[in-house]
Amino acid sequence: MCDSCGCGDPKVVPFDVHERILAGNDRVARHNREHFRDHSVVAVNLMGSPGAGKTAILEATARALGGTARLGVLAGDLATDNDATRVRAAGILAESITTGSACHLDAEMVHQGLHRLPWRALDYLFIENVGNLVCPAIYDLGQDVNVVALSVTEGEDKPLKYPTMFHKADLVLVTKADLLPHLPAVSIDAIERNLALVMPRPALLVVSAVTGSGIDRWINWLEGIGRPRPALGTAAAGAGRL
């Protein structure tokens, strides 16, 4: 008997589901996370616009670590194997996840990607998400942290235009800092102020993959994952530039 809409139709029954629409994705993400924990692999979901410098950051990370940590990448793109090829040339184990027309990675795509990568031997697994500041934000992949790359050429107001993405970020890498001398209208302080409005615990690092500036602090941040990170969280009062 339907007693919710009042139609009185005896053949209609209301059923309270109360389940997250992404419950299926969340289950696979939990499964991925358990795998990573069991094998002490730190998983980083690296997001950002197309061209924000995600792949260049991975190349710079490999250069900076110089073989002292085992790195792996699952690179998501709609088409081509270009990013995986680039990071392999930098000495990182990499596989592509080609999404076709999908605008984001989900936990199942990552799970399938893991079957093709010897991830258990890694210290860090970077999941390079599809270049997009909207859709990837809502899919849990099983990662430990979310890192968003935001290049100085994208505009200071991106955090305000795409608040969900930056709200989910544990760290924002402000990339291509070497271009700042050519961009007199771009202010790091303005980016920082805008991030402070949308990130619960604002944290950003200004880096350049070309000159290597700031990469040492990024490596320190990475090495702090899974251990107490007093610099994070307490950084909010000072708007959190590390």
Binding site: S4, V12, V13, V17, I21
Partner: peptide, 13 residues
């Protein structure tokens, strides 16, 4: 942050 399937009305035989 909520995104849930809340309730269905199902037609039964």
């Amino acid at each position: 942050d909520e995104l849930t399937l809340d309730q269905l009305e199902l037609e039964v035989p």
